[in-house]
Computed example of a mutant assay.
Amino acid sequence: MKRTLTILSLTTSFALALGACNQESPKQQQEVSAPAQTVEKPESAEVVQDTIKKSIPSEATGRIGDASIKITYHSPGVRERVVWGGLVPYDQVWVTGAHKATTVEFDRDLIIAGKSVGPGKYALFTIPGRDEWTVILNKNWDQHLADEYDQKEDILRTKVKPYSLEHPQERLKYRVEDGGEAEAGIRISWEKIGIRLPVAGK
């Protein structure tokens, strides 16, 4: 009789333990799958943002015709500031970057805005306007901002029309475009505005 009771007791204990295991399985399954569900949520995806406050040393290179072009500049960010008419005043000579003067260097003759310019290294300045910009190449490329700018040292001045960018540009960006038989030039874009300086090989 005692043996029968012992067997029944063991059987009951085993059944209770098995039932407990079966009850815990869904919870365990939920705990395992929870992280996967969290990863799949759209709000969990983090967008990498530019949090650097300083202007970044930058460079743009390319070829137009047979000439190699290198543009060296410091790239400031918008950082939720008012750029045009605020950070960058209208109708004043702007370094078109930050810190030292932006430089443009090329090794062959080029036709820039219809004018022949010999190889060398030049400072690139602009005078932003609401409806029209002036783009300037100046002999004195080694200067801080436009502190030493002298119009007498200009080798080129030309007018260009600004245009609206399809997507906002957080940091100032230069780009050399070789259009082959079509349009070629240097593009400058920042915030919601862009300009293009026409350049052709000789």
Rank of each mutant, 00 (worst) to 15 (best):
S44D: 08
W133Y: 03
A45I: 15
Y90G: 03
Y122S: 07
Q49E: 14
V104T: 08
D109H: 05
D66C: 01
G65E: 06
K100I: 04
A146W: 01
S116L: 12
E80N: 15
S68V: 01
P42S: 06
R63Q: 15
R130E: 15
L110A: 01
I52C: 04
I71C: 11
I136F: 07
P76W: 00
I111S: 15
G114R: 10
D150T: 05
T96W: 05
E40D: 01
S68N: 15
T72H: 07
F125K: 06
V95A: 12
I71Q: 09
L110N: 03
G120A: 04
K121L: 06
K41E: 13
D50N: 14
G97S: 07
R79V: 00
R108L: 00
Q143E: 12
T134S: 12
G62N: 01
E43V: 14
A123F: 03
F125S: 09
D107R: 07
V104R: 10
I71S: 09
P42H: 05
I52F: 11
S75E: 05
P42I: 06
V83A: 09
D50R: 03
N138M: 02
I64V: 05
R108C: 04
L145T: 07
N140T: 14
S68F: 03
K53W: 01
E148H: 07
Y90F: 15
A146K: 03
P89N: 03
Y90I: 11
D150S: 13
F106Y: 01
I52A: 12
W141C: 10
G114C: 05
N140C: 03
L110T: 02
P42D: 06
P76G: 06
K54I: 10
H144P: 00
S55D: 07
S68I: 01
Y149S: 13
G85Y: 10
D131Y: 11
E43A: 15
T134F: 08
K70I: 13
Y149P: 13
G86V: 09
K70E: 11
P119S: 01
G129R: 07
I136P: 09
D150V: 04
P76D: 02
R130Q: 15
K100S: 11
A45W: 14
V78Y: 00
R130P: 04
A123D: 04
P76S: 05
E46I: 15
W84C: 13
R81T: 08
S55W: 00
S116D: 09
D107P: 10
G118A: 14
V117A: 00
V88S: 07
D142V: 07
L87W: 10
Q143P: 10
L87T: 12
G86I: 07
G97W: 02
S44R: 13
R79C: 00
Y73V: 02
D150L: 06
G97N: 08
S75M: 04
I112G: 07
T102V: 10
G129Q: 04
I127P: 05
P76F: 00
K139E: 11
H74M: 11
I64D: 03
Y73T: 02
